[in-house]
Amino acid sequence: MHRGGSSTRQRPACSPRSVSRASCGAICAAAPIVSKTDDAHLVERQLDSAEVYQGHFLRVVKDRVALPDGGTASREFIRHPGAVMVVPLLDDGRLLMERQYRYPMGRVMLEFPAGKLDAGEAPLVCGQRELLEETGYTAAEWAYAGVLHNAIAYSDEGIHIFFARGLSQGTQKLDDGEFLELVTHTSAELDQLAARGELTDAKSLIGLLWLQRWQQGAWSLDWQPA
């Protein structure tokens, strides 16, 4: 598992040479599932921190931390201002989405509208702004689903998930240098795209999960007027 850094202390690991398959299975089967409120045995404590890189809105930092067992380790990760994703529901049940070239991936990706939070901006305000800028739509009702932490090993980014319905079409207000194509899909179509490995954007997959669970009545959304 990638931890965003390295430890200065080697700790023993379970391996075929140290624990037999049978005994490991017995230990795992016998271990109870415990919900702990005291996480002191897991928490890492910051000793010092240094900024490695400052970009337009991303910062890379390298921290030295104290481990629960007394060892030390380094943790390199990205500081992110946070973002918002919107799942826009059209009146006919289709979902409004975007196709956009993502340079790090080297290809066009299918995703729900999203964007980063400006300094001091409330998540709902950001979602309303991004929906209008990227799609030209406004929404009469909004519902907050929760927050997604999409890269916990190397970033503190949190993406707030909103649902929007009662859509009215207006005019896009794309940023300079921003190019995207609007498309629509049904939930069933997105499910098939995900099954075929054609929908791989993490935030959009979580948005699809939320949508399906809400449609099934398993998860609730508290709709509020804009």
Rank of each mutant, 00 (worst) to 15 (best):
A151E: 08
A226D: 14
A114Y: 03
T171Q: 15
R79L: 15
W142V: 01
V84K: 01
V34G: 07
Q212P: 04
D201T: 13
L190G: 00
V108K: 06
Y101D: 08
D191R: 03
P88I: 01
E189S: 07
L58P: 00
M105S: 08
D176Y: 03
K62L: 13
E189Q: 15
Q54A: 15
S20I: 03
T8W: 06
A29K: 13
Q100W: 04
H80Q: 06
G71N: 02
A202E: 11
Y137F: 13
L131N: 00
A143Q: 05
F57K: 15
L182R: 05
L131P: 00
E111T: 13
F57Y: 15
R59I: 03
S15T: 12
V108H: 08
C28E: 06
T186I: 10
G120S: 10
P113N: 06
Q46Y: 14
E178S: 10
R11D: 09
Q100N: 07
Y144S: 03
L95D: 02
I161C: 04
R9S: 04
H185L: 10
G158S: 13
P88V: 03
M109W: 00
T171C: 11
L174H: 12
D63K: 05
D92R: 11
D191Y: 00
I206Y: 03
E141Q: 14
V147N: 03
A153M: 12
Y144W: 07
I159V: 11
W223L: 10
R213P: 01
D201F: 05
G93V: 11
R79Y: 06
L208I: 00
A83T: 10
H2F: 14
D91E: 14
G177P: 02
S187G: 12
A50D: 08
D156N: 14
G4A: 09
R21L: 10
P113W: 01
R94M: 05
R196T: 11
R94T: 12
E189T: 08
R107H: 10
R9F: 07
I78V: 15
I161R: 00
Q54Y: 02
G146C: 08
R45K: 15
V86I: 12
F112Y: 04
A114H: 05
G120W: 05
D156I: 03
G82F: 06
S168Y: 02
I33S: 09
H160E: 09
S49W: 09
L131Q: 00
A13V: 07
S220M: 11
R99H: 10
K203Y: 04
W214G: 02
V84Q: 01
C14W: 05
S6L: 08
M85S: 15
G146T: 07
D38R: 15
L47F: 04
E44M: 12
L47T: 03
C28I: 09
H149G: 13
S18T: 06
A29H: 13
L205R: 13
G82A: 06
L96V: 01
